Amino acid sequence: MGGRVLIALGGNAMTAPDGSASPADQRRAIGRAMTHVASLIRAGHEVMLTHGNGPQVGNILLKNQLAAHVLAPVPLDWCVAQTQGTLGTLIMNALERALAPEPVRVATVVTRTLVDPDDPAFREPVKPIGQYFGEDEARRFERHGQTWRRFERGWRRVVASPWPVEILDAPAAIALMEAGYTVVAAGGGGVPVVRAEDGTLSGVEAVIDKDLAAAALARAVQATELVIATDVPHALVGYGTAAARPIEEITVAELRVLQAAGHFASGSMGPKVEAALRFAEDGGNRAVITSLEHIGEALSGNIGTRVSRGVER
């Protein structure tokens, strides 16, 4: 019997190869992804799933903008909750099909992630979301309280990306797993919420990095391994240069050195590396960064960037 494995699915697992996020494309992509997950379950691993939601939230934001003259825009925390429900349903259906005729119980938990209202990210939003627009459109939405910034390709909305403090609904996910369910939780990094002095919670306009939230969720549910599924088989040292080489087995200390040297871009591999490091540093057996089709081999130790506390070489 394998251990408890948390798999964090990247956007490539839920869209077409060209990034298209039409309903048909999402169904096909998630169906393919769940065949790989099903193989792990058949091998005896206890699996929990989390996922990104960038393209899906982008679609909702575009609908907001197209309908703004009729309806007030939907808050960003609502967008995350909606995508948790939609993607969770697609994942549940696809995983049940992939495991048929074997009996399987799958559940999705709409999950809140606590963030600190004093997180510096709220003072200077920098996370771009949604599509590019002209200045007139950007100014119109600034009147709704949004922050927009000019980029090379046009104007784009930017929001805060605070650090995940706690996955609040992890106990519900644990209870379901202990009852025999494969659980989908903390999709899109979780619905961002802050706690008031009286203890009440409220949503905020923010986006939580899904890989960092996955590390927090993995710790909360006592996963033995964290698998960050992306579109490449390994993280690379010297990415984009002639000296590029894959990172395979590596200790936390060694990977921290590479991170400090600037090998991992903040907008792509950087959060994945940080999430892997955090999980291993906080007591996880091993974190793996690899492509979706290689997750089984990665857990066997044959491929992927495999991070552990280890004995330094």
Score class of each variant (00 low, 15 high):
R4K: 14
I7Y: 03
N12F: 12
A16K: 04
D25P: 07
Q26I: 10
R28N: 12
A38K: 02
A38D: 03
I41W: 03
G52I: 04
Q56V: 05
A67Q: 02
V70H: 04
C79T: 11
V80C: 08
T83L: 01
L87P: 03
G88E: 10
I91R: 00
A100H: 10
E102C: 04
P103A: 12
A107S: 14
V109D: 13
V109K: 02
T113F: 10
P120V: 15
E124H: 11
F133I: 10
A138F: 14
R139M: 13
H144D: 12
G145P: 10
T147L: 03
T147M: 04
W163V: 10
I167A: 07
A172P: 01
V207F: 07
A215G: 08
A216C: 13
R219H: 14
A220W: 13
V221D: 04
A223Y: 07
T224S: 15
L226P: 00
L226E: 12
V227W: 04
V227N: 04
V227I: 12
A235T: 08
G240H: 09
T251M: 08
S266L: 00
V273L: 07
A276Y: 00
G284L: 09
R286H: 07
I289H: 03
A298P: 00
S300Y: 07
G301N: 14
I303G: 00
G304R: 03
V307M: 05
